[in-house]
Amino acid sequence: MARLDRTRTANQLRPFFSSQNLLNRADGSAQFDFGGSSVLCSVVGPAEVKIRDEKLDRATIEVIARPLVGLPGIKDKSRERSIRETLEPLILSGLHPRTGIQIVVQTMKDDGCILSTAFNATVLALLDAGIPLNSILGSVTCIVDEKSGEILLDPTTEELSQAKSTHVFVFDNKSSISTTGAAAMDLDSESSPILFSDSTGLYTEEEYFKCANICHKAAQTVHGFIRTAVQKKLEKEYQQTHA
């Protein structure tokens, strides 16, 4: 069945786009696009932190989510918490005790999957800022369609409004490095540890794990894209410094 945008199959993601180092005054920044959705993320740190928030053995991570229009509301608070709690174990914050790392996530264009876009933009910005991480994460959203019951990856706003359930997943790249070649083809559900998951709507257990599996496969593409983006950026920087 053709999707609403008539250009994709159910398991296809929208075209990615990213650019790093866009902001002058931040230590690291990146923009990540999933088709018509775009998020700009800036990272400042490790920098001084308010005494009240200071942690003796690690860096304090602060995430600020800004909506497309208007003032931040409770949806943005939820998004902040999701991003922060997922990044806290990812960032090697023990290397920078008593400092703060501030991450600002600004929605630029909204056509669905903002949380996933924000996750991917944040990772690129952290890499740009040179913050040590123990793995790279990749995030993908999918929905179960109300009418057809089909699982659609990377839905647009229009598709989201017709969803029976919505699922956001984050996977790290630790599990994807080892699964190359034939092993990557048949990823069974046991091999995909889920870093973050947020699902709403009405769905069965079976549907949920099917979605998790499909999103895990799609997250490999995101990991690959992030790797290429970083590689290209480093090549460019190397050429500039050694010209």
Partner: peptide, 14 residues
């Protein structure tokens, strides 16, 4: 299932 959320440390297997 009406909602399922997993946040924070520890990647949990299915």
């Amino acid at each position: 299932i009406c909602a399922l959320s997993k946040v924070g440390g520890g990647s949990s297997s299915p």
